[in-house]
Structure formats: structure tokens, C-alpha cells
Simulated scan of single mutants.
Amino acid sequence: MNTEIEVCIDNLESLHNALSGGANRIELCSSLALGGLTPSLGMMKQAARISSVPVYAMIRPRQGDFIFDDDDMFCMLEDIEACASSGLDGVVLGVLAPNGSIDMPKMHKLANKAHSLELGITFHRAIDQSSDYQTALEQVITLGCKRVLTSGLAANAEQGIDILSDMVKQADGRIDIMAGAGVNATNAKMIQNTTQVPALHLSGKSTRPSLMENNSSAQMGNSDIDDYQVPVTDANKISDIKVALTA
């Protein structure tokens, strides 16, 4: 099986690195430290210019849960249009109701907008917070999504292997199950062989030192974040997974 490797990034330096490492698809975000938020319009446009592989943009207007009100929905619908006008290939999204079920009325609005603009859809890890993943998977399929990103409802994909396997069997080729969270070169082949997922998702995260020549004690954000370390995707972590999968 040829396993797709999707790399999630939140800066354009990481896009270059992900492509260099052999990524098959990009999930474009801002703020990966918050689980990924919607990228800016400028970032969408430049990613479309740079990338030689499909780019899907995260549509998530804020951090926190996946319960979105009417203001959030307005933003999400506008951001889906921005993805299309920027030349991207798809969107990554998900909306839940307070009881943990998929909010189908809102998902239909978002999915219909994406389909009308010929954008592919990935349903993201909101499914890992759902109250009934088997029902949720069937609903995601009816929405016309191309794939669902999931850790198998666990803290990471390795711990979620049993449910990932169940999802692949239930999907039966109707939708791709993409395993994400904690995927690396050490466990990628085991996860793929055990579950038969057709796609793996990771950030390949690392850091590089800031190019600033002078340091300051001023903090731009939380005190536990080092402004002089820049998070970037490591191209070698992506290429190492591709090698591991063929070993």
C-alpha cells in the first residue's frame, strides 16, 4: 500500500521543509500549538504559489472546543471562500453539538459551501471528541468528506490502534481514515501495518534558533514560550517516515 503522508504546518518555512521531506499533502494552519487555527489569507495565497502538492487549510476560528455559534459559522463560511479564491485544494473542519454528536445542520452548511467551490474536505479530530464514533463516521461519509483525521479517540495514534482498525473496516473504502497524533518514523510502519490506514498525519516538529542578534527580556506571549526558538517542520523527520514505511 502506498501510504500518503500529510504534514501539518503553521509557517511557510515549514512548507518548504515538508515538501523537501516528501510530503504528499499539506494541512495549512496557524497556531499549531493550539491544535491548529485558520491561516491568514496571505498565507493561503503564498502556500498555493509554493506548493507542488495539494494544500488543505484548517477552518477553525478559535482554540477550544468544536462548538461554534453563528458568528463563528459566518467566519468559517467566509474562510472557505478564501481558500477557494487563494487556489487551495481543500479544507479541514469539524463541528460538534454539546452532547458530543456531529452538528449536522452546521456541517451541511460548511460542506455544501466547500463542495460548491470544488474543495475537498477532511473532517478533523473533532471526531475524537464525539460521543459515538461509529455513528459520527457514517455521518462524515454522508457529508461527502474525502477523509477523516483521527487518533482513534486516544491521546495518540499508537494508543488508538484498535479503534483506528475498526474505523478502517467500517469505512470499507468509502472514506480514507488518516491516523494522526504522535506519528513518527519509529511507529509509522507498525501503525500502518496494524490498522491498514491509507494515510498518516504529522507535523515533524522541531525548532531552530531565532536569527535575532540581540535578546530581550520582553515576552510577546506566554512566559513559558521562548520567542527565540522558532517552531519548524524538520524535513528529515518526514523523509525518515517515508523510508520507514518502505523498509
Rank of each mutant, 00 (worst) to 15 (best):
L117C: 12
K109A: 15
N17E: 06
A188M: 08
I175D: 02
G160P: 03
G120H: 11
V92C: 05
G87K: 05
S14E: 01
D224V: 15
D172T: 05
H16V: 08
L28W: 06
A111C: 11
R60A: 09
P39K: 10
L143G: 07
M73F: 07
G152I: 00
S20K: 14
P209N: 12
V53I: 10
L200V: 10
A181T: 08
E27I: 06
L245V: 12
Q46L: 12
Q134L: 11
D166Y: 04
D65H: 13
A218L: 13
T207A: 10
T186N: 06
S14R: 02
I191H: 02
S116Y: 08
C8W: 01
S206I: 02
N187A: 13
A171H: 07
T186A: 14
M76K: 03
M212F: 09
A33P: 00
V140K: 03
R208Y: 00
I191L: 13
V53G: 11
D103Y: 04
V92K: 06
A97Y: 02
S130I: 02
G21L: 11
L164K: 06
S203D: 01
T246E: 10
N214R: 14
I50H: 04
T246Q: 14
M58W: 01
L202T: 10
H16Y: 05
P231V: 12
S20W: 00
M212D: 11
D240L: 08
T233C: 14
D162Y: 09
R25W: 04
I59R: 03
C8D: 04
K242G: 09
S216N: 00
T186S: 08
T38E: 01
S30T: 11
H108L: 10
E81M: 08
D69Y: 05
A114R: 03
Q196N: 14
H201T: 08
D65G: 14
M220L: 11
H115T: 08
P105A: 12
M43D: 01
D89Q: 15
D10E: 07
N236T: 15
D71L: 15
M104A: 04
I102S: 04
I241K: 07
E27D: 06
N156A: 08
D10I: 12
D132E: 09
I127R: 04
S86L: 04
P198C: 10
L211T: 10
A57G: 06
K146V: 02
T246F: 00
N187S: 10
G173L: 03
R147A: 14
S239Y: 01
H201A: 13
V197R: 03
N187D: 03
A47M: 02
G90K: 06
D166I: 09
N214E: 11
A126P: 01
A181S: 14
